[in-house]
């Protein structure tokens, strides 16, 4: 069945008609052309299609679009101000924590959620939190270092007035 829904994506409301069977991944990629969201395994096992749903990382390939209404959806396109790199992205660049980088958008968003939830994570907490994201180039050691650098960058950043 088709129905009209409104999704809040990267702080913008998008109203569109979707089929009940359409996944959030299909809507984000095929309809809205948010190419940072990537299909890889289709079964929620790799984290390539990670987006933030009310700040929590989810696999967009397992979530139906119609079940995503009324939530804040963030893709990598919505991270930062669109001009400068976010400190997490800066850290991934400085630590060379990307190679083919197909997994990178998912990792960056998972790290965002991690640092929002645990501002000062231990290695174990990082490993635990990021274990749903696969990097086949196996740059895990670099990613681990990038998380620590991102944490430092964020903690040094001036606090924005509320």
């Amino acid at each position: 069945m088709k129905r009209e829904i409104t999704l809040n994506i990267n702080d913008r409301d998008e109203t569109l008609v979707v089929d009940d069977a359409e996944t959030l991944l299909e809507v984000l990629r095929d309809r809205l052309k948010l190419w940072s969201v990537r299909e890889s395994c289709g079964v929620g096992a790799c984290g390539s299609c990670t987006v933030l749903l009310d700040g929590r990382p989810v696999s967009a390939c397992l979530l139906l679009a119609v079940r995503s209404t009324g939530r804040d959806i963030t893709t990598l396109e919505g991270l930062g101000d669109g001009q400068l790199l976010h400190p997490i992205q800066e850290a991934f660049v400085s630590e060379r924590a990307l190679q083919c980088a197909y997994c990178t958008p998912g990792f960056v968003l998972s790290v965002k959620a991690l640092l929002d939830e645990i501002p000062n994570p231990s290695d174990d907490e990082i490993r635990e939190y990021l274990s749903g994201n696969l990097c086949r180039c196996a740059g895990y050691a670099d990613i681990l270092r990038a998380v620590h650098l991102a944490r430092e960058k964020i903690s040094r950043a001036p606090v924005k007035p509320e």
Partner: peptide
């Protein structure tokens, strides 16, 4: 040196065939 492909990759803007 930094990877010259870092920016498009870390922003998710890198062109892939699927796009």
């Amino acid at each position: 040196v930094y990877r010259t492909d870092a920016n498009p990759k870390v922003t998710g803007r890198a062109l892939h065939v699927g796009n």
